[in-house]
């Protein structure tokens, strides 16, 4: 059976791509973020996941306001990155896993998540940069297959934190009912606090970010209590990307422990955060297999 071996969360600010392109990983500004991935690399090397399910928000590369899905799941054999309009390098294409995608899609809809299914999907920086951060030395091909899952953060109304957590739970159940022996890592990308628009632009809330990082490990339900208005007030208008973390955490259904965690602000306009959580089968789940 497929197993979820862990969850990774990271900020995905576009300037990470520019920093990589300019080779600035070890400059004082960027070092804390890039060094946060040293333990992540060691863990990936040890566990060697086969597939990453990447939960993120599209920033107007693949989806426009003509059709804006609340939740969408990729079902392609390959996902391409593309020009987003402000000049960060386009990364090599990512292999998909269509069989697992369709299994997840079937299970999600049966579970009353009426997602949009996509056989073509351009993946933006929120998908590509986290994978680049995970595998900085990968060349033209990436060492694992991928499945993109998007949560709308562009057009309100957005789904609630509680709904995103339930989506994550349903994704977790779907993956763990897949009959092939696969090791899956679930990635949630975005956040933490930031706001790009309005006279409150530049708002960062370190205290709330640190609270989220504490609760996400073993008390994620605390985070599902916030309304979207509260999240915007506490984390800024783009801080709603916290939803991707919450959905990731919903997918981890075993015994969850923190492997690594870094907070560094600001990264660009954002409270930068990276966390790696291990997910081990609970004794009950192991006995049932």
């Amino acid at each position: 059976m497929a197993r979820i071996i862990g969850g990774l969360t990271t900020s995905h600010v576009p300037s990470i791509g520019a920093a990589i392109a300019r080779g600035e990983q070890q400059t004082p500004y960027w070092k804390p973020l890039f060094d946060a991935f040293i333990p992540v690399h060691a863990w990936l090397e040890a566990v060697k996941p086969d597939v990453a399910v990447v939960i993120y928000n599209d920033h107007g590369l693949n989806f426009f306001l003509d059709k804006m899905p609340t939740f969408a799941v990729g079902a392609a054999a390959q996902y391409d990155n593309a020009d987003e309009g402000w000049g960060i390098p386009v990364l090599p294409s990512f292999a998909g896993d269509p069989d697992l995608s369709w299994h997840i899609i079937d299970r999600l809809v049966a579970d009353e998540f009426d997602i949009t299914m996509c056989q073509e999907m351009l993946v933006d920086h929120a998908f590509t940069l986290p994978i680049k951060l995970m595998y900085p030395d990968a060349g033209a091909t990436w060492p694992l297959r991928t499945i993109p899952v998007t949560i709308n953060s562009v057009q309100h109304p957005l789904p609630s934190a509680a709904r995103c957590y339930k989506l994550g739970q349903a994704i977790g159940r779907a993956i763990e009912s897949y009959p092939k022996d696969l090791k899956v890592v679930v990635v949630g990308t975005g956040g933490l606090s930031h706001q790009l628009d309005g006279t409150r632009a530049g708002f960062i809330n370190k205290q709330f970010d640190l609270l989220c990082m504490e609760k996400i490990v073993n008390d994620p339900l605390a985070l599902t209590q916030y309304s979207n208005r509260q999240i915007i007030e506490l984390a800024g208008s783009q801080g709603v990307e916290l939803m991707t973390w919450i959905a990731m955490r919903g997918a981890l259904q075993g015994r969850v422990s923190k492997v690594a965690s870094t907070y560094h602000a600001p990264i660009s306009n954002t409270g930068g955060a990276v966390m790696l959580l291990a997910n081990e089968p609970t004794p009950l789940a192991a006995a049932a297999e």
Binding site: V154, Q155, R229
Partner: peptide, 22 residues
Amino acid sequence: MDDLSKIPGTPIFQGEQAKRGY
């Protein structure tokens, strides 16, 4: 439903803005 209006300094992109800004 969340009332997203009047968060100081924070424009929220709702249906009204989507319609006007298309």
